[in-house]
Design a protein around this nucleic acid. Structure first.
Lengths: 218, 218
DNA sequence: TTCACGCTGTGAAAAAGTTAACAAAGTCCA
DNA sequence: TGGACTTTGTTAACTTTTTCACAGCGTGAA
């Protein structure tokens, strides 16, 4: 299989589907229909089928989609062959929350190391993750050939840290800092705008008469 | 002015623009051009102009957009007339981080109260926010006529909490829990999928040869 | 065997979002 | 004064994403 080139939005939804069907599987289910998954994930049945089609996953008109086949296919499509190691920069409240998230919900992702400037945190181990000084970012990332980094630092520090990460060989950055970072074009950056998300919810909550987003499930 | 009905994506970007131009304004700038804002925000100049057009904000070919006009126009478009009060459910690491975020970057949003099940937190004040027992959610939300809620609870608890919030009159929910919640159609729900975002970055970092998303800013 | 049923897979249409491109307008400089 | 320059406001083209709609296919009932 070459590069399937899955659309951005589909990748996101596949991840959600996987989480949902895993839960379903714990409940004893063997298979489900597209409309069931759509209801659980908040989308339309056609979209579910199309997303699954994109990764070459097919179901039967009788049983729907087999859950274990589905989990496997999603894994094949979006996970790497091996587990992927990441580093986390900034172990404040947000960083700590992220460590828990990854540990709990992302079995194929591992936070290999965390970095902070607070001397009282450096050298300690938080949830199985060792904390280093930010000064050693370059060295550790390069040595360990880490390709993915999570930024949970204050906005002012984000660009400098990002520069160091890129220089050390990182290809993907998930940035939670409220400031847009600039990188070479071959680095994938996902900018998580918590502020913007909050303000968006406030806006649409005020305009709640006119729904967008809300799927017509039910 | 009636309901301007601004597109979802535009609302998000406007929020980002505002944050950026505010910073710029601290730096002494009076006005900027669309291409400058585009570069700072990671988009195209045409998009910036289109977004600003959507809120009836106009600039001059000579100065570009005046920063204070811009901030005011964005505020008029996406903020309410008065500051909006929210409640936060779940004061773990993530919740604590969110309190800081709102305080620091969202001057028009106030977290009025937080709720948790941990007795050691209840009754205390965290960053100016008083923590109550989750049992009092309904009462406080209804009494104070809170319309927006942030969910930072474990996935298992999300649906039950959401039901209570909706019953108490909430119109908008920002859900950080990794489980999709169901609500009546007149409630706006924003599902923040941290897990999915992480996996997406991992996926695209691996496929970094083929860029999407990355704007061609230099 | 034959029919009706319900769901999948998928092309085609529609909608949403983004980029390109250009007329209009103000300023500067000669 | 007039022409070159720069950037806005906006329309049109284009791309991406979502929805519609229906043929095809096992199954189970008759």
């Amino acid at each position: 299989m070459i590069a399937p080139e899955i659309p951005t939005k589909t990748v996101e939804r596949l991840s959600r589907y996987r989480r949902i069907v895993r839960e379903r599987s714990d409940g004893g289910a063997i298979s489900l229909f597209s409309y069931e998954l759509a209801k659980l994930a908040g989308g339309s049945a056609a979209q579910v089928r199309r997303d699954l089609m994109a990764i070459g996953c097919s179901g039967s008109p009788i049983y729907g989609y087999k859950i274990d086949t589905l989990v496997e296919a999603i894994g094949l499509a979006i996970d790497g062959a091996t587990e992927q190691r990441m580093v986390l920069v900034g172990l404040g409240h947000l960083g700590a929350a992220l460590v828990d998230f990854v540990e709990r919900y992302c079995p194929k992702l591992v936070i290999f190391a965390a970095f902070d400037i607070d001397p009282s945190k450096i050298g300690r181990v938080h949830h199985g993750v060792r904390v280093y000084s930010v000064e050693s970012i370059g060295q550790i990332v390069a040595e360990q050939q880490i390709r993915i980094a999570i930024l949970a630092v204050p906005g002012e520090a984000a660009q400098a840290v990002a520069d160091g990460l890129v220089a050390a060989g990182v290809h993907g950055i998930l940035n939670f800092a409220p400031s847009v970072i600039r990188t070479p074009i071959n680095v994938y950056v996902e900018q998580t705008e918590i502020t913007a998300t909050l303000e968006k919810v406030a806006y649409f909550a005020r305009h709640y008469g006119a729904q967008q987003k809300q799927r017509k499930e039910r």
